[in-house]
């Protein structure tokens, strides 16, 4: 029964990692850059829901309705200004700039809101769960987060495959110049992709704040897990990321079961083993990313 519980709880966390990671994969797929401040965007969304939303009369539980669209807009703007400027130099500069932003955001949050843990108050919902067997409890919030993750990944898959904008995004990610020659404004498409990435990671940040406490440093730690999910699942595959997230989640639960200190270590080790044995991940394309 313990084993079943480890798998179930791991899968629940894994859904969250996939939700957190899908924007990271999308931006890499489209712009060939990694936003190292991706995790910090989630934390800023969490702080916005806790501190800013109540000032406008929005309850924390429903804050995502406002925060997510605002972050989509923010993503578009940040992409068209700061990130585009660094992409125009080279991908290398983008790494330096987004890493700098990550450190800046974390330290600003520390100065303004201290290192104290915060959480999004959802009242009695936080504790409510249903019982699967005598030892296995499933929290409703975690289940909803997993459901949201699957829904977001599915929606993203349909959006990329079957809509005009989605096709444009894929065209630009395949060949930027060719798409530009055919009349697609790739900078605008980059902005849209960043908008989606910021929106999904803001949603992940709020979901995180509802299930547990977060602090300025949570962005960095969750980015590592999300990244591990992407690589384990295979770079470039959305459903692979979900499977990778669940694999990392289960590894962490297993590690924690052996010794609470090993929770993070087990996830890291799974990542390193996959990197050594199957560098393209479980569902990755054959070619290595360049």
């Amino acid at each position: 029964m313990t084993w079943l519980n480890i798998v179930i709880q791991g899968a629940l966390v894994g859904g969250f990692y996939a939700l957190f990671a899908c924007g990271l994969s999308l931006m890499f797929g489209v712009m060939k850059v990694i936003n190292l401040a991706h995790g910090d965007v989630a934390v800023v969304a969490g702080y916005t829901a806790v501190f800013l939303a109540p000032k406008f009369g929005v309850s924390p539980l429903w804050s995502f309705v406002v925060v997510v669209p605002v972050f989509a807009l923010l993503g578009y703007v940040v992409q068209r200004t700061l990130i585009q400027k660094s992409i125009d130099r080279d991908p290398f500069t983008t790494l330096l700039v987004t890493f700098g932003l990550s450190v800046l955001i974390e330290n600003l949050l520390l100065e303004v809101y201290t290192a104290n843990g915060q959480s999004i108050n959802i009242g009695s919902l936080i504790g409510s769960s249903f019982q699967l067997s005598s030892t296995i409890y499933i929290s409703y919030v975690s289940l909803v987060v997993l459901g949201v993750a699957v829904a977001v990944l599915g929606a993203l898959q349909i959006f990329l495959g079957h809509t005009k904008t989605g096709r444009l995004i894929r065209a630009v990610s395949d060949d930027r110049e060719a798409a530009q020659l055919s009349g697609a404004n790739y900078r605008h498409i980059f902005g849209i992709a960043a908008g989606i990435a910021f929106a999904t990671v803001a949603l992940a940040g709020i979901a995180y704040g509802m299930t547990t406490e977060f602090a300025p440093s949570s962005g960095v730690t969750n980015l590592i897990y999300a990244f591990e999910a992407v690589v384990v699942g295979g770079i470039g595959s959305l459903w692979g990321t979900l499977v990778g997230g669940i694999a990392i989640g289960i590894a962490q639960q297993l590690g924690e079961h052996i010794n609470p200190e090993y929770q993070v270590l087990a996830g890291n080790l799974l990542f390193l083993v996959v990197l050594a044995v199957r560098p393209n991940g479980l569902f990755g394309k054959k070619t290595a990313p360049s």
């Binding site: 850059v33 990694i34 190292l36 790494l95």
Partner: peptide, 14 residues
């Protein structure tokens, strides 16, 4: 085995 940004985050994991 990883390049660019993925290399970066992997150094972080290490």
């Amino acid at each position: 085995r990883l390049r660019g940004g993925y290399f970066s985050i992997a150094t972080w994991v290490v």
